[in-house]
Each structure stands twice: as structure tokens, then as C-alpha cells.
């Protein structure tokens, strides 16, 4: 999946990935996609929940094996 902006939150635990996402999304324009990279498994559930509450659109989630564990990529489309 192609993103317009990437946000690296590797090494950060809850709630930092979500807080960083909520700050970063303000820099995007409507329609752009933000890719949030995290190694916190909680993001699989937390990012859809954040999108549902804030109204942004969750457009994808990718999971891969990194050097020191699983890496998650959440794709969020700015809607407003």
C-alpha cells in the first residue's frame, strides 16, 4: 500500500503511537494517507478504534517480520 506520509513509532508503547498519529495527521491534507509503523501489537486494535472515534478512515493494515519482532503498518486516510 502506498502512503503519502510515513510516521515511525518503532519502540514506542501505548499510548505514544496514537498520540503521535493524532499530531501527525494534522500536517496532512484531506485525502492523503498516513502510514504508521509500530512494533506494538496493540496498534492492530487501537488504530481502527482511533479511526472510528475521530472519523478518519482506516484503509489498511500490514504485518511483517522485523529483525527483533513483528512490525505493523497501519494506513490511515485523512477525511477532514
Amino acid at each position: 500500500m502506498q502512503a503519502d506520509v510515513k510516521l515511525d513509532t518503532l519502540g514506542y508503547f501505548c499510548p505514544m503511537p496514537i498520540i503521535l498519529t493524532s499530531k501527525k495527521i494534522k500536517e496532512l491534507t484531506v485525502g492523503q494517507v498516513l502510514e504508521v509503523i509500530s512494533d506494538d501489537e496493540g496498534i492492530k486494535k487501537d488504530m481502527p478504534a482511533w479511526c472510528e472515534t475521530t472519523g478518519h478512515e482506516m484503509v489498511g493494515l500490514e504485518e511483517a517480520q522485523g529483525a527483533s519482532g513483528r512490525i505493523y503498518k497501519a494506513f490511515v486516510k485523512k477525511t477532514k
Partner: peptide, 9 residues
């Protein structure tokens, strides 16, 4: 608190 604030609450 920070999580909720990040969710726009």
C-alpha cells in the same frame, strides 16, 4: 487522559 485527548475527546 492522553489517549482520550488524542481521540478528540
Amino acid at each position: 487522559a492522553t489517549g482520550a485527548a488524542a481521540m478528540g475527546m
